[in-house]
Design a protein around this nucleic acid. Structure first.
Lengths: 215, 215
DNA sequence: CCGCCCTTGTGAAAGGTTTCACAAACCAAG
DNA sequence: CTTGGTTTGTGAAACCTTTCACAAGGGCGG
C-alpha cells in the first residue's frame, strides 16, 4: 500500500470524510463503499481503491464502521488537529475569508492578517488586528501559522508567496490568478475563479457549436 | 483533431491565453511552444499537443503569431464575447465577487443578484439592486444571464442550482462545499476552499510523517 | 537558389488512473 | 456447524494523459 497518492484521490478522501461525518451525526454505524461513493460521484470500486492505499478499514460483508473510518481519514488527511492560517491581503476576498465561519468550524483558524494599506493597518477585521507587511516574518514565527493565504493583487502574489515561504509556512493557498511555482517543497494550491469561469465558457461554446452544426 | 477535450487541457489553454495577452501588450510578435509552456508549468510538447486538438496554428521554425493565437484561443474558449452572471446569495463571498473588478475586466459581468434576506432585498451592493428569490426566474429570463453563481449556505445550494437550471442558465459556478450533480447537461464547477485546505493539510501531514520516520 | 538551423505537428511509447471482476472474508439464520 | 447472502480488497484490463522523438516545413544568410 501507500506509494505516491494522487491529488484526485486526496480530494475524494475529503469528500468521503464529509459524508461520513454527516452519517456519524445521524447515528449511522456502518456504511458500504457504494453508499460512500454516491455523493462524490465516484464508484464503489474507486472508494475501495482509494482507501486501500492506506490500509484495510472495512469488514467484508458488512462495510465500514462510520466512527472508525472518520478517525482513520482524519488521521490520513491531517485533520485530527487544527491548522493556523496567516492571511496576506485584507481586500474583498481576504475579508470574505475572515468572515467565513466555515473555516474555523473545520479546523482552519486565521490567526494573523497583513496588508500594505496604511488605512487598514491597526484596525480590526472580524476581531483580528491587521498588521503591516513588515511584521509578517516575526508574527508568523510567533504565532506558528502553518498555512499562508495569498489574497493580494496578482502583481505582488509571487513575491508575497516567497516571503511567506521564508517566514516558515508549510503550505500556501493562493487566490491570485497566477500559477505560482512551488519552492522548497512548500505545496501551493491556487483557487482561480476566472479560470473556472473560462472553463464553463469553453463548455458552453462547445455545446453551442455542437448543437449548432447538428441541427 | 478535436475529439473530447479534457478538463486539464482547457485549463492550460486559459493559462496560455493569459500569457499571450501579456505578450501582446508587450508588443511581442512570435512565441515558441517552450516559452508558452513555462508559466503554466507545462512542457513544450504539451502545448503543441493541446493546440493540435483544434488545428494548426504555428509556423515551423518560427513559432506562433501572438495575435493570431490570442484570437484563436479566444474563439476556442468562447472568450471573444462577454458572459452575463446571475449571483444567488449576497453574503460574504457573494459581496466579494460583486466587488471584484477582475471579473468584469475579463468579460464576466454580474448582471443580477438575489438573496432571501428581507433586510438586503432592495438595497444596492456595488451598484446592483438585490432582488428576492421569487424574481429569479423572470429576471434571469429578461436579462439573459448565461452563468449562475451559487454563493449560498450549503443546505440550500442544491435547490438553488436546480432553480438556476430551470431558469435557463447554461452553466453554474458553485461556492458551497458540496458536490452538485450536473442535470440536463448544464456543467457545474465547484470552488471549494475547505477542500483545497484539506489537500494542503494532507501534504503537510504526509511530509511530516515521511521526515519523521526518516530522521 | 541552396543549405543550415530552428520549431512545429504527430505517431508511438510510457506513465498514470479508473473500472472490472472475482476470490476471500464476514455475519446471520437455521 | 453449515449455508447463503453480502461486501471488501485487489490483481488485471481498459482507458486516458503525458512525454518522447523525429520527419516535415519554414525562414534566412550567403
Amino acid at each position: 500500500m501507500s506509494g505516491r497518492i494522487s491529488d484526485s484521490t486526496v480530494r475524494r478522501l475529503s469528500l468521503y470524510l464529509r459524508m461520513l461525518r454527516d452519517l456519524e451525526r445521524a447515528g449511522v454505524e456502518f456504511v458500504s463503499s457504494s453508499q460512500l461513493a454516491e455523493p462524490s460521484g465516484a464508484t464503489s470500486a474507486q472508494v475501495r481503491k482509494d482507501l486501500s492505499h492506506f490500509g484495510s478499514f472495512g469488514k467484508r460483508g458488512r462495510g465500514y464502521s462510520v466512527d472508525g473510518l472518520v478517525r482513520a481519514l482524519e488521521n490520513i488527511l491531517g485533520l485530527s488537529r487544527s491548522w493556523r492560517l496567516a492571511l496576506v491581503g485584507v481586500g474583498k476576498i481576504g475579508s470574505a475569508l475572515l468572515g467565513y465561519g466555515g473555516l474555523a468550524a473545520r479546523g482552519f483558524d486565521v490567526v494573523a492578517a497583513f496588508d500594505v494599506d496604511e488605512a487598514k493597518i491597526g484596525t480590526r477585521a472580524h476581531g483580528l488586528r491587521i498588521r503591516p507587511m513588515r511584521e509578517l516574518r516575526p508574527v508568523i514565527a510567533e504565532c506558528g501559522a502553518e498555512i499562508g493565504v495569498v489574497a493580494t493583487p496578482t502583481e505582488v502574489a509571487a513575491e508575497v508567496a516567497a516571503e511567506l515561504e521564508r517566514a516558515g509556512v508549510g503550505a500556501i493557498l493562493n487566490f491570485a490568478p497566477i500559477e505560482l511555482s512551488e519552492v522548497n517543497g512548500v505545496p501551493i494550491r491556487t483557487v482561480d475563479i476566472v479560470l473556472e469561469l473560462e472553463g464553463l465558457s469553453y463548455l458552453m461554446s462547445e455545446s453551442g457549436r455542437r448543437t449548432g452544426s447538428d441541427a
